[in-house]
Nucleic acid binder design. Sequence first.
DNA 1: CCGGATGTTCACCT
DNA 2: GAGGTGAACATCCG
Length: 276
Amino acid sequence: MPELIEVEIYRRQAEGLVGRTVSAVSAPDEWFLKGATTPAALLSTLVGSLVTRADRIGKLLLLEVISGHRGANGESAATEAGERSTLGLRFGMTGRLVVDGKAEIDELLYSTSTADHRFVRFGLSFDDGGEMSMIDPRRLGGVEIAPDISRLGPDAATLSARQLCDAISRSTIPVKARLLDQSRVAGVGNLIADETFWRAGVDPTRSCASFEPVEVTALAARIRSTIKLLTKRGGSHTGDLQDHRHRDGRCPRDGSPLKRDEIGGRTTYWCPVHQL
DNA sequence: CCGGATGTTCACCT
DNA sequence: GAGGTGAACATCCG
């Protein structure tokens, strides 16, 4: 996916929805509805509601809405006027967001063009004639009313040394596995993780417990700076290591053959010479 | 044809 | 409880 950086781009797109009222919901794929979310619940929660905010925690996009008044005959509105709700949008690995026919991220690795209508999994229409849709070929994403955000760690883009310390304390697993755990730190995906460790000169297989306080502070700073850099460049795939993340790849810094292994269930590349 | 790809969740082990 | 593994989702690409 879309890691934190891409979802932040989606969030900015979604800010264009603030101030609009939902006129219709399209949920052609029930698999895409997560938790207790049903088509009926979406209808009663969203139709007639005003979008008030677009927030983001890690890779989760949150649309805040407030319900409005229904027709004079008071048709079945399960939601009271003025009631606030949150719609959570997850993008999996291949999900993209289209607002009013425009996609800020048109081409995504391992995905298809937004011109392909086959994979529209969810959509909202607005009273001004605009629309928002989610495209996700692999259906790894989803939407959920009132998603449980208590299970997400602090956002990686603003991660403090103290927060990272808490996230990796009392654990013996590889530090990269911990960073990928969204309940510990929210937003770091496989590409951001490999790029961060490469830039930090840190071996991603190292146990969390092996980190000295000064190293934790440095790593937290490196996570923030890497996200900032990749955001400026335009995506999680714009790191210096990216083009070398393949078998036979060599470290772009010192030319040594990269190590390849599975950490935290994800393929990991790192340089055995300068990442210690 | 096979393997693997920016992700998450869950069941089932040790 | 912690941690690891594999499955599931489904498509594209080399």
